[in-house]
């Protein structure tokens, strides 16, 4: 996996987990972000902090094409500019009030957030269908050990669990935590997808046990 995150993409959430009109928290090498999708379906990523009183914007709400802070209702557009301050309904917020934004790409059913200005597009993940995301209290090395495979430069690894081929897209979070996106080769039946989900739960248990062993004195 890449060691210098600048100019790279981080897979933060599956498309299905960000329906229109919602906001979710996510972590990237650029810090915590609020990832939101407008009513019309456009995804945006902003810093997860309202510049007014520091409240996490991922606790906020999406109305139409704006993200609002839950604390005082300040709303922001996709470009991060403040559009409305409810305490002063007649005031056009000055340009200086804005939240930092990050590039977002939606590729292959995954939402990617860029750190800096990536020169390339996120990986295509051709032929792979996202299943679910889960967080592990284990570093990439422990997950690789549990999966018996190494992740490539995009953070993707392939493992066989039982009779199923499963692909894991790994994103490092802070302090030996890893976000795992599970991808399958094609849709598969409901039973196959349930089995894959359970197999990855088992893999996570194994990786976390390995991580604990590593940490033990």
């Amino acid at each position: 996996m890449l060691s210098d995150p600048t100019g790279s993409w981080t897979p933060v959430v599956l498309s299905a987990d960000l329906p229109p009109g919602t906001v979710v928290p996510a972590r990237t090498p650029a810090g915590p972000i609020a990832l939101w999708r407008s009513a019309s379906g456009r995804p945006s990523a902003s810093a997860d902090r309202c510049p007014h009183r520091g409240m996490r914007l991922s606790h906020g709400f999406v109305r139409g094409e704006t993200l609002s802070c839950i604390y005082h209702g300040w709303s922001y557009g996709q470009a991060g500019n403040c559009l409305r301050i409810p305490a002063h309904p007649g005031l056009a917020p000055p340009e200086t009030i804005r939240v930092a934004t990050h590039p977002v790409e939606e590729v292959g059913g995954v939402l990617w957030v860029g750190v800096g200005e990536p020169a390339t597009q996120p990986p295509q993940l051709a032929g792979l269908v996202p299943l679910r995301s889960l967080q592990a209290r284990a570093g990439v090395a422990a997950i690789e050990a549990a999966a018996g495979a190494k992740a490539d430069a995009d953070g993707l690894l392939e493992t066989t669990q039982g009779s199923q081929k499963i692909h894991l897209l790994l994103a490092c979070q802070e302090r030996d935590e890893t976000l795992i996106h599970v991808l399958l080769e094609g849709e598969g039946s409901v039973a196959e997808r349930v089995a894959a989900s359970r197999a990855v739960e088992a893999l996570r248990r194994k990786a976390e046990a390995l991580e604990m062993e590593r940490d033990a004195p």
Binding site: L14, D17, P19, V24, R132, L134
Partner: peptide, 8 residues
Amino acid sequence: DPYPTIRR
């Protein structure tokens, strides 16, 4: 934060 399905 880590539970997308619970969130939905």
